[in-house]
Every structure is written in C-alpha cells, then in structure tokens.
Design a protein around this nucleic acid. Structure first.
Lengths: 139, 139
DNA sequence: AAATAAAAATATAATCATTACAAAAGAGAA
DNA sequence: TTCTCTTTTGTAATGATTATATTTTTATTT
C-alpha cells in the first residue's frame, strides 16, 4: 500500500491521517513483524526525532478502536500489534523470539460451549521452536 | 482432589508440598476460575495472614516450570492461571469479565505453516459476550 | 535435643510497560 | 489573523512483576 493509499485507508476508517499515524500504519504493513510499541518507536524515532512513545501508544489504541489492527498477547509481558485483522494464527519461537503468521481455518474445528455466546474475536497461537532454530540446534 | 491427594500430586511432580503451595494449588482446582495472582492472594490471605504476594508469584512460577498449570494471556495487562493443562479453549466475556472453558478439538483444524516447527503449546481463545450478559442486556 | 544446612516464605525496594495529565504544537474555519 | 479543536509531546503517576536480602521453616546430622 502506498502512502497515498494509507491516507485514504485511514480516512475511510474515520482516522485523521496525521504524519505520525501514517508512519505508524506504514510500519505495520511494511514489516508485518508483529512489533511491540518499542519496536515501532525505535524504528521511527530516527525519521521523526520528536516522536513520543505516548504518541505510539495513543495511535495504536486508536487503530484498535477503529478495528484496523489487532492485539497479539502471546507473552504475558509483551504486547504486540498486527495490521492483519483477519482470523489467523501465530507461532512464537521460544528460541529466537520471532512471531510467524500461521494460516488456519477455525470454522472446521469442533467446538462446544460457544453456541449461546456472541463471539467478537477469535485467537489461536502456538509456542515452540521454529524450523531455523531447530536446524541451528543440530550444529 | 483431597488435600492428601494434592500432597501426593505435588510430590509426584517434584514439588515439595509446603502449606502455601498446597493451598494455592487447592484454590486453583477448587474454583477453576482462571484467577489472577491477586484473586488467589485476596482469597488466601484470610486463612494465611502472613501470606506474601511474592509467594504466590513464586509458587505459580514453580507450578508453570513443573508444567502442572498453564498461563492464560487473553488480556494484555491481566495474567491468569489454569490448573487444567489440557489443550482447551477460553472465552472471556467483555461485559462481566468471566473466563469460561471451551471444549474444542484443534486436531480437526486445517493449519498451514506449522509442519516444520516443533510445537510445545497451543492456545485458543475468544472474546465477546456470554449468554448471561446477552440476556441481561435485553432488559 | 541441639546444631547445622538447605529450602521456602516474607518484606521491601527496584524495574518497566502503560496510562494519566497538562502543556505545546499543528490544522482548519471564520 | 484569531479562535477552536485535535494531535502530539514531555513528565509524572500507576501498577504488575521481579530482584534482593532477611527471616522462618524444614530436614539432617551429631
């Protein structure tokens, strides 16, 4: 998505496209790395020296309210964000810390106990060791 | 599970069954309410006036290492614990805050991208509104 | 039973992510 | 330009968790 498109996209979701908001959303879709607040801040502060961490927090909170990003809470002390709001899974490697996207179809899953609830969010995640780290461990 | 059984259970998992540990594990299986550290502390401090929150933290950490409980991280700022270590789902009601157990079978789910990873944990959770709150909302 | 050593519990302080708040900067309208 | 509203920023406050040192308990040995 180009910067112009991001501007349009934010407007469509009733978000005024300030420079900071553009840059933060741009970061999310450019890297798709499920960043923490600090990841985003550290990357952008070079380009926007006046950037405040509060702005990153505020912006992500706004994006969440407008439902253009989702929260990833795999680790208790580590909040991450994802611009892909579709239902999909995540895998966090306990060795290298990387978070991978996992394609999955939860509609094919046998579930009991949800019938009478209204579900607004579904999340699936895994932990373990990724292929790269498995190979490295053999050395 | 009776107190004697809990004692045996802890021993079997190489955990010395101190009074505090017995009580904390007893709380978990008695209420099955996916408590926070504070939930446990507040309940037990009446019975054990000298109880320290650090002890609750230490004990839960030990239980996690010995894999007799699991961590639930639905909400970013709210760590919960579950003595049921089998793979099952959770549903958190955004109105009343209650966390429900959801029976599910993830082996029947179509997944792509995990084939070459070693998976040690699988988690599924949902958010929304529970039946009780849906009914209450109609009034 | 006393002495000793090891483990566990406790109290307190430190850390760190997040939030609250107030002030400054920026954008748009009259 | 002036006024108003929104956004950003800096700083302080909050609160959960962890680190550290001390005390208590438990187990072991003599």
């Amino acid at each position: 998505m180009s910067v112009n498109n991001i501007e349009e996209f934010l407007k469509q979701h009733n978000i005024k496209p300030s420079y900071q908001r553009l840059k933060i959303y741009d970061y999310l879709i450019k890297y798709r790395n499920h960043p923490t607040v600090d990841d985003i801040y550290q990357e952008l502060v070079d380009e926007i020296p006046t950037l405040s961490k509060t702005t990153v927090y505020n912006t992500l909170k706004l994006f969440l309210e407008k439902r253009i990003i989702q929260l990833i809470t795999i680790e208790e002390n580590e909040t991450r964000y994802d611009a892909d709001t579709s239902v999909h899974g995540h895998f966090k490697c306990e060795e290298c810390g990387k978070v991978y996207d996992i394609w999955l179809d939860i509609t094919g899953m046998k579930i009991e106990g949800l019938e009478k609830f209204r579900v607004s969010e579904s999340h699936v995640y895994f932990k373990g060791t990724c292929e790269k780290c498995l190979i490295n461990n053999k050395n």
